[in-house]
Simulated assay, not measured.
Amino acid sequence: MTVLAACSSNNKESASNGGTAEQSKTIKIGATAGPYSDMVSKAITPLMEEKGYKIEVVEFNDYVQPNKSLDNGSIDANLFQHIIYLNKFSKDNKLELSAVSSVPTAPMGLYSNKIKSIDDIKEGSTLTIANDPANLARSLLLLQDIGLVTIKKDADPATISEKDIETNVKNLKITSLEAAQLPRTLDSSDLAVVAGNFALAAGMKLASALQLENMAENYRNVVAVRTKDAEGQMAKDLKEVIESAAFEKTMDEQFQGFSKPEWMTK
């Protein structure tokens, strides 16, 4: 975990040092490395600073610590996960966390350095996908949309895994790995399904994907806080900032290709 940007807490008690987010306007927001930490830094922080907040951006490289750190008060909000994962992780770990608002999200994509189109995918091609629940389900649903696999109709959207593959149309040889490693597998495997944040962090272009996912609303990332803070002023200010015209303008200018939540497109 690395603090990307640190601001002094002036003389007020920091929310992350035993206080609550409501006792101080110095708050820590955690996000995964790449576009979501950039989103906090470039789109959320300036607007929150206009409201008098001092923001520290904390970067994570996994999908476990951001929620545990939020729960224990090390950070005051996070941005890295969709609502399905938030709800499941909270239930499994007995945490009380809540979503504030959904944000534009980099879509999952099927990429290849060897294959130029979906029609060129051969029998027995090698494929790497994420092994974490947050990305595995989306990966398999993308493969189903393309027509490479079919998923059992009774599969739970929160826990879809390779075991739920009913038909592997091309007999793909599937290997699951940590999501952050997937861009590096493109030199050794025929195909890889890569989450948008890790693709962008690796210097890949979303437009270079053989196909991007048709993202369901519940797979768009959310800003989350502790449930006890969900009705407090900090959460209200975060929601107001995210749902502002200024935030959307930054999305349009600096986060092109991100899938916008329905509330933003109405």
Rank of each mutant, 00 (worst) to 15 (best):
A134G: 15
A134Q: 14
N135A: 12
N135W: 11
L136D: 13
A137Q: 12
L141E: 15
L141G: 12
L142K: 04
L143A: 11
Q144W: 09
Q144Y: 11
G147S: 04
L148G: 04
T150K: 04
I151A: 11
I151C: 13
A155S: 12
D156N: 11
D156H: 10
D156K: 04
I160Y: 10
S161F: 06
S161K: 04
S161Q: 03
N168L: 09
N168H: 08
V169C: 00
K170H: 08
N171C: 01
I174R: 06
I174C: 09
S176N: 09
S176F: 08
L177S: 04
L177I: 08
A180Q: 15
L182T: 05
L182F: 01
P183N: 05
R184I: 15
L186M: 12
D187V: 15
S189H: 14
D190C: 05
L191D: 03
A192H: 04
V194D: 02
V194Y: 07
V194F: 09
L200C: 02
A201P: 10
A201E: 11
A201G: 07
G203D: 07
M204A: 07
M204F: 11
K205V: 01
L206Y: 02
S208I: 03
A209E: 00
A209Q: 08
L212N: 00
L212W: 04
M215F: 03
E217V: 03
E217H: 01
E217Y: 07
N218D: 13
R220A: 07
R220M: 10
